[in-house]
Simulated scan of single mutants.
Amino acid sequence: AVVVTDRAQNPTGAAVGADRARELRAVLADHPHVLLIEDDHGHRIVDLPLHPLAGVTHSWVLVRSTAKAYGPDLRLAVLTGDAVTVDRVTGRQGLGPGWVSRLLQRAVVELWTTDAVDPLDVARSYGERRDALVRALAERGVDARGRSGMNVWVPVAEETGAVARLLHAGWAVAPGARFRMASGPAVRLTVSAMAAEEIEAVADAVADAA
């Protein structure tokens, strides 16, 4: 199986562009029996278009959750795919505790149909703060990545010390160890709760810690 995060990849914010999608589809076309799972959790919070890979393998699903745009407590996602794979997922849910409260389902439908969240405004808000933080870090000589979504990935010399120094300065960040396998140490910053007026102070603290 292949699992692809199409947009707002956690932690780097990477996104699959049109050229990359064509390259990946060409590779997958040579392996039609691979199960393709596309995670588009950034739907409605990202200002980049979706370039899906689905359709070149026999088995595929594309999943969109409500967790990022509306709140993790809703515990609801929508899924599409080929008929056999969708039927298998449905069957597995019928065998265990995979049922989602009808109240939560109706709450999500209400949020969708009443336009309770303006996805363009949300995407713009995250994008402006994320890009501003990346620029502020670059001005301080700190390399950082964050192309889409709400996270910024910052390489550091040593994770534990950087996390501790930032916490002492009043900022909580995630150590990169849980997100990486072969890449170097880093920390993940999230702009979801960061106000625009805090960005300069955060950048100063990160520059000192990194």
Rank of each mutant, 00 (worst) to 15 (best):
V108R: 04
S192M: 09
A67Q: 10
A21D: 04
R92T: 04
G17P: 00
A14H: 07
A15D: 09
G81L: 05
R102G: 07
V187T: 04
P32Y: 12
G13M: 06
A123S: 15
D82Q: 08
G81Q: 03
T66M: 08
V86N: 10
R22N: 08
A193P: 07
V122I: 13
V16I: 10
A29T: 13
A162D: 05
G96L: 11
A195R: 13
V163Q: 09
P52W: 08
D143Q: 11
G146H: 02
S65I: 07
R135H: 04
L167P: 08
S125V: 10
V206R: 00
D204I: 10
S59T: 15
D115E: 15
G71M: 00
G98A: 05
Q105A: 10
P32W: 09
E38V: 11
V154P: 02
Q9W: 07
M181Q: 15
A14C: 11
A201R: 08
R188C: 02
A132Q: 02
V154L: 01
V4L: 05
M150A: 05
G55D: 03
R88E: 10
V89T: 12
V46H: 01
H41K: 13
V56M: 03
T90A: 15
V61Q: 02
L103W: 05
V2W: 13
A15N: 00
V56G: 04
H51S: 09
R44M: 03
M194S: 01
Q105T: 13
W112Q: 05
L111K: 15
G81T: 06
L95W: 01
A1C: 13
H31K: 14
G170S: 01
A172W: 09
V117N: 03
D39A: 03
P52G: 11
D115M: 14
T90Y: 12
V206K: 01
R145Y: 07
A177W: 12
R145P: 00
I45P: 00
D39T: 00
K68M: 11
L76F: 01
R165C: 09
D131I: 04
L95P: 08
W99T: 13
V27S: 12
A1P: 13
I37K: 05
L48W: 12
L137Y: 09
R124V: 06
A18C: 05
G96F: 06
R88W: 09
E128Y: 05
G96I: 08
V63L: 11
Q93A: 14
A26D: 06
R64G: 07
V206S: 01
V3P: 06
D118F: 12
A29V: 10
A210Q: 10
T90L: 15
